[in-house]
Amino acid sequence: MVLDLNNIQITLNAVPLFSPISLKIQAGEVATIMGPSGCGKSTLLSAICGNLPKIFQLRGDVLLNQRSMLDMPMEQRRIGILFQDDLLFPHMNIAENLAFALPEKLSRASKKMKIKDALDLADLSGFGKRDPATLSGGQRARVSLLRSLLAEPEAILLDEPFSKLDQQLKGQIRHFVFDSIRTMNIPALLVTHDPKDCPEGQTINLGNNGDSDAG
């Protein structure tokens, strides 16, 4: 699986947010886009996953496994996304949050198995019935990642997913995220303003190129 950004550029009122980006991310690799807030990193991610606000224009192409994504609606792209807020659904318990992501075709028993395995993997055994509100920030972040991965995405985008965690947790969660992505063997793209977040993959530094409010 390969995520291929081909000469991507986003403009707002004909002003480009950054110079064109080309990046080929292999399966299991975590590439990074660095830059201060306001440089258009998150806008780039929403363009890739198919959620670009209409006021922006997009040039270039996004290919996932050689298929162009641009004409596909977001829900068919199979690109997972992780925000800095975990966005766990507060009206569902942990197991239900995870079940929401599982494919419909799975049997009830195999869904249960998958959820249990996922929770075990994240050191959250027995948390299935818990209310998300009772979990710590680190636990919630892990559930959030598990949820994204259980949908079996073919690529995943990470939008400053560690920025709200405290220093101690950061390293722990970072490891968990990067390890899980490697195990899933899918391409991942991380945007961050914190150099410490960077894994070993390719890194692009966006700098502050355009004057835009987009964060």
């Binding site: 792209r77 925000f83 966005l87 507060p90 995405p153």
Partner: peptide
């Protein structure tokens, strides 16, 4: 409620927008 990003999460999990409203946002 963070509607914009809840919809983004729901859709990235493969749900069409209408289903995200019915299953995620309206219950909240």
């Amino acid at each position: 409620i963070d509607v914009r990003r809840s919809i983004a999460i729901g859709r990235s999990l493969g749900y069409e927008t209408t289903q995200v409203w019915i299953k995620i946002i309206i219950p909240q």
